[in-house]
Design a protein around this nucleic acid. Structure first.
Length: 542
RNA sequence: GCGCCCGUAGCUCAGCGGAUCAGAGUAUUGGCCUCCGAAGCCAAGGGUCGUGGGUUCGAAUCCCGCCGGGCGCGCCA
């Protein structure tokens, strides 16, 4: 058991002795920011003072007195309004190193109490153009989230929903057809909502070169979709993201799921006819207005395949589903959930989960970059990877809260200096590797090394940091917040760099040297484990 | 107009189930390589946490109003 859970258990025992009537209170053990306050703190007395009508400091005193004796606790003191500060015995934290070294790449992972089949759906770009930076943010977030949930013991499926059935595909085909016929966006005959990027012309050229006839719109459509899908796949591969399933929207029509979804909605009794259209009472499920299911011309709105699609997720056995989308789609959240509710199948009202991310602004040379030559109107993921490299793009895009606005500073991500957080973390990893190659010994034997000498303040900080990694991952997974991994890695790397600068690792004294090497090996392992979750490499040299 | 999200140091952002939460990076300034990688470390200055109320012994954190910014409000997808 890690030390924090252990302390919490001790406090629960103390609480049961002091105030059995409050035994249900939640015991929170925190790490004070200020190390002079000790290694851990508990604010239980402050929490309960009012409820028990007692003076917080007195209560703290009683709790501290009732704490079972424990060899790992060096001192207890009451501070401030009623905090109980705990200082650990020097050896208490050293177990973290052995745990890290014993578990290796598995350190930080958990065995879920109830393993679930989990789906993360992300990117899901329309096949009408190259992936843009927003897709990049989704890819970075979604893939990290999927890895995080896997690390919690779940069986995760990464899925890409492929919108290959809508009107936008028709526009794509018409655009390519126009280009193939020599019509440019500024010309009179250009389709009304045509795609204007240079990639359209490129596809048209390749289509012609392959012997395609511009008059055959269906042939144009198939060729264009295949070309763009291939390009998106190449971009995702370059980004290090792989999907388990590509789900085709068109298949929902061909296998009758769209039709059966409509029937199910009608059968539920939540629909009505008005103005020649079929409506669903989504307002009964929190929507601000009812939604059209079947238009007066007999065709369905996009809402129907959306419901049909999410129903397949449920039917395929995914009881936890996370959709990663841009906030520009947030209005679909209520609608999709409402549609699933209306089916009357007992699907929970909060199904599926959503992680909505704000849009990305790209800045270069102090100015916003808006136009990509290639795509015509947006900066592509490929542009970004070409400019700054895959590791930097992934680290940057995943290192902010999803709902925060994001300014991607190209110059910062490009810099190979101390300005760059990616290199900062990777450098810490490479530095440890460098120490090990200098040493030349066998790291395998370090797991059993005696660690008594690791009790300096910097060493204690590192030990605590290593020890909290599993809990950090659990919290990040629960909150669907992979950005906290990036922040954790930055802190761990920082503490390592401080330690490295203050203390020599390869000292003459063998016991001390071995202990320090073991600590370094553990740091390296956790850095590598964290970076792996983010899809960022952990280089041995840079 | 309505709904959702955001407003924290010059800049980019953490913290937001209240207390030991005024933080990090960067930028600026000053130090540290005859010694394991200076892509590093140490130190200093810099913020009434958009604003006004409320709840509380205690609010960046919870509630309400307002201001500023983003997104969404189609029988488009």
């Amino acid at each position: 058991m890690d030390i924090k859970a252990h302390l919490a258990a001790l406090f629960r025992t103390a609480l049961a002795g002091v105030s059995p009537e409050a035994a249900d209170a939640e015991v929170l053990i925190e790490r004070p920011r200020d190390p002079t306050h000790g290694d851990f703190a508990c604010n239980l007395a402050l929490q309960l003072a009012k409820r028990l009508k007692k003076n917080p400091r007195q209560l703290a005193q009683q709790l501290a007195g009732a704490l079972p004796a424990d060899a790992r606790i060096a001192s207890i003191e009451i501070a401030g309004a009623g905090f109980i500060n705990i200082r650990l015995a020097p050896g208490a934290l050293q177990g973290a190193v052995a745990r890290v070294l014993a578990q290796g790449a598995a350190y930080g992972r958990a065995r879920a109490a109830q393993p679930q089949q989990v789906m993360v759906e992300f990117v899901s770009a329309n096949p009408t153009g190259p992936l843009h930076v927003g897709h990049g943010r989704q890819a970075a977030l979604g893939d990290a989230l999927a890895a995080l949930l896997e690390a919690q013991g779940h069986a995760v499926t990464r899925e890409f929903y492929f919108n290959d059935a809508g009107a936008q595909i028709q526009n794509l085909a018409l655009s390519v057809q126009a280009r193939a016929a020599g019509v440019a966006p500024q010309d009179a005959g250009w389709p009304a909502d045509g795609y204007r990027g240079e990639y359209i012309e490129e596809i048209a050229r390749n289509f012609a070169a392959a012997g395609g006839k511009a008059g055959d719109l269906e042939a144009v459509r198939q060729f264009a979709v295949a070309a763009l899908r291939k390009e998106q796949d190449a971009d995702l591969q370059a980004f290090g993201v792989a999907f388990d399933v590509y789900y085709l929207e068109s298949s929902l029509y061909t296998d009758g799921r769209v039709e059966s979804a409509v029937k199910a909605l009608v059968a539920s009794g939540k629909t009505y006819e008005r103005d020649g259209a079929l409506w669903l009472r989504t307002t009964e499920y929190g929507d601000d207005k009812d939604r059209v299911v079947r238009k007066s011309d007999g065709s369905y709105t996009y809402f129907v395949p959306d419901v049909a699609y999410h129903l397949t997720k449920w039917e395929r056995g995914f009881r936890k589903v996370v959709n990663v989308q841009g906030t520009d789609h947030h209005s679909t959240v209520t609608r999709v959930r409402a549609g699933l509710q209306a089916l009357g199948l007992g699907i929970p009202s909060g199904y599926p989960d959503y992680v909505l991310h704000n849009l990305v602004k790209v800045v270069r040379g102090g100015e916003e970059v808006k136009i990509s030559k290639r795509a015509g109107s947006y900066v592509t993921l490929r542009d970004l990877i070409d400019w700054v490299g895959r590791d930097a793009v992934r680290f940057f895009l995943v290192s902010r809260r999803a709902d925060a606005d994001f300014v991607f500073d190209v110059d910062l991500a490009r810099s190979r200096s101390d300005e760059n957080p990616v290199y900062y973390v990777q450098y810490a990893h490479a530095r440890v590797c460098s120490v090990f190659s200098q040493w030349g010994g066998d790291a395998g034997g370090l797991a059993a090394a005696p660690l008594d000498s690791l009790h300096g303040p910097r060493e204690s900080a590192l030990l605590q940091r290593l020890a909290e990694f599993p809990e950090l991952l659990a919290t990040a997974a629960h909150e669907l917040a992979p950005h906290s991994i990036a922040f954790y890695l930055r802190e761990l790397a920082g503490e390592f760099h401080s330690y490295y600068n203050a203390e020599r690792i390869l000292v003459d004294d063998e016991a001390a040297r071995t202990a320090r090497l073991a600590l370094c090996a553990a740091v390296r392992q956790v850095l590598a484990n964290g970076l792996a979750l983010l899809g960022v490499s952990a280089p041995e040299r840079m």
